Computed example of a mutant assay.
Amino acid sequence: MLRLVLARHGQTPANVERILDTVLPGPGLTDLGRLQAEALGKELVADPRGPVTALVSSPARRARETAGLVAPAVGLTPGVVEGTHEVQVGDLEGRNDDDSIARFRATYDAWREGDVAARMPGGESGRDVLDRYLPALEGLRAEHPDGTVVLISHGAVLRLVAHALVGGIPELGSDDHVDNCGRIVLGADHAGWSLEAWRREAPGGLASTRDATGG
Rank of each mutant, 00 (worst) to 15 (best):
R159W: 03
D211Y: 01
W193Q: 05
V129E: 01
H154L: 06
W111I: 02
G26E: 10
E86Y: 11
G28Q: 04
L160K: 05
H85N: 09
Q11L: 03
H9P: 00
R49P: 04
P48S: 04
V166R: 01
R49S: 15
A60K: 01
P59A: 00
E201K: 08
V87L: 13
P203K: 01
R49T: 14
S194Q: 08
T209C: 03
A14E: 14
V166G: 05
A191F: 09
G90T: 09
G94S: 11
L186H: 13
V81S: 02
T30L: 10
A60F: 07
G114V: 08
L20C: 14
D128L: 09
G126E: 09
T209Q: 06
A73H: 15
W193G: 05
D31Y: 00
L35Q: 14
A14V: 03
I152R: 01
L172V: 10
A136W: 02
S174H: 12
T213F: 08
G214V: 04
V116D: 10
A46G: 10
G68V: 02
Y108H: 13
S174K: 14
S58H: 01
D97C: 13
E124L: 12
T30E: 10
A73M: 03
I184G: 11
E196S: 12
A14Q: 02
V185W: 08
S100K: 03
S208A: 14
T53K: 04
N15C: 06
G168Y: 06
G50Y: 12
V23W: 07
D98A: 15
R62W: 02
G168M: 01
L134V: 15
R3V: 14
H154W: 09
A188T: 04
R141P: 03
T12K: 00
A39D: 08
D179G: 07
R200I: 08
G33S: 07
G187N: 09
R49G: 15
G168I: 05
V149N: 09
T209G: 09
D47I: 09
V129M: 11
V5T: 14
V23R: 13
R62Y: 02
L4Q: 10
L29M: 01
P121Q: 06
D109C: 02
E143T: 13
T22R: 00
V16F: 00
G75T: 13
D211C: 14
S100H: 10
V178S: 00
G192F: 00
T107E: 00
G90E: 11
G147A: 09
Y108F: 14
L137I: 09
E65T: 08
S174N: 12
T213D: 08
P25T: 05
V185Q: 03
G192Q: 05
V161L: 01
S57C: 06
G122E: 14
D31E: 15
L137D: 14
D189R: 06
G114N: 08
V161P: 01
V89S: 05
P25Y: 01
